[in-house]
Deep mutational scan, measured.
Amino acid sequence: ALNRGDKVRIKRTESYWYGDVGTVASVEKSGILYPVIVRFDRVNYNGFSGSASGVNTNNFAENELELVQAAA
């Protein structure tokens, strides 16, 4: 299972961040479909780089994520 702070690569092909590595911000335990919230260094097309207006978190299912580096 994934944990907060883990570095993960995104495998959801239609995602803006496909192939990117993000950090797990939190994992919901309530049984929702996309329980893993991942935070990225770059914002998506809703904002400009360096601006706070873009979105830099997204929810994924565990099977859409590949663990790159476990949290220390």
Rank of each mutant, 00 (worst) to 15 (best):
A1L: 10
A1T: 13
A1P: 11
L2C: 14
N3R: 13
R4S: 11
R4G: 06
R4H: 11
G5E: 02
G5A: 02
G5L: 01
D6K: 00
D6L: 03
K7Y: 06
V8F: 00
V8G: 01
R9W: 03
R9P: 02
I10Y: 00
I10V: 14
K11F: 03
K11Q: 08
K11R: 09
R12M: 13
R12L: 07
R12A: 11
R12V: 06
T13P: 12
E14Y: 05
E14Q: 07
S15F: 01
Y16N: 03
Y16D: 04
W17Q: 01
W17P: 01
W17G: 00
Y18T: 04
Y18A: 04
Y18M: 03
D20H: 05
D20R: 03
D20L: 06
V21I: 11
V21A: 01
V21F: 04
V21H: 02
G22D: 02
T23M: 08
V24Q: 02
A25N: 06
A25G: 02
S26T: 10
S26M: 06
S26P: 00
S26W: 09
V27R: 01
V27W: 04
K29M: 12
K29L: 13
S30T: 14
S30F: 11
G31T: 12
I32Y: 08
I32M: 11
I32L: 08
V36N: 02
I37T: 14
V38C: 06
V38Y: 00
R39W: 07
F40S: 03
F40A: 02
D41A: 06
D41C: 15
R42P: 13
R42H: 11
R42C: 15
V43L: 09
V43N: 07
N44G: 03
N44H: 07
N44K: 11
N44V: 07
Y45K: 15
N46G: 10
N46R: 00
G47C: 15
F48N: 15
S49K: 06
G50P: 12
A52D: 13
A52S: 11
A52I: 09
A52Q: 09
S53D: 13
S53A: 13
G54M: 04
V55H: 07
V55A: 06
N56S: 07
N56V: 06
T57R: 04
T57M: 09
N58V: 07
N59F: 07
A61C: 15
A61V: 04
A61F: 09
A61I: 05
E64S: 00
L65T: 14
L65N: 06
L65E: 00
E66A: 07
E66T: 08
E66M: 06
E66F: 04
L67S: 02
V68P: 01
Q69I: 10
Q69H: 08
Q69D: 10
A71R: 06
A72L: 10
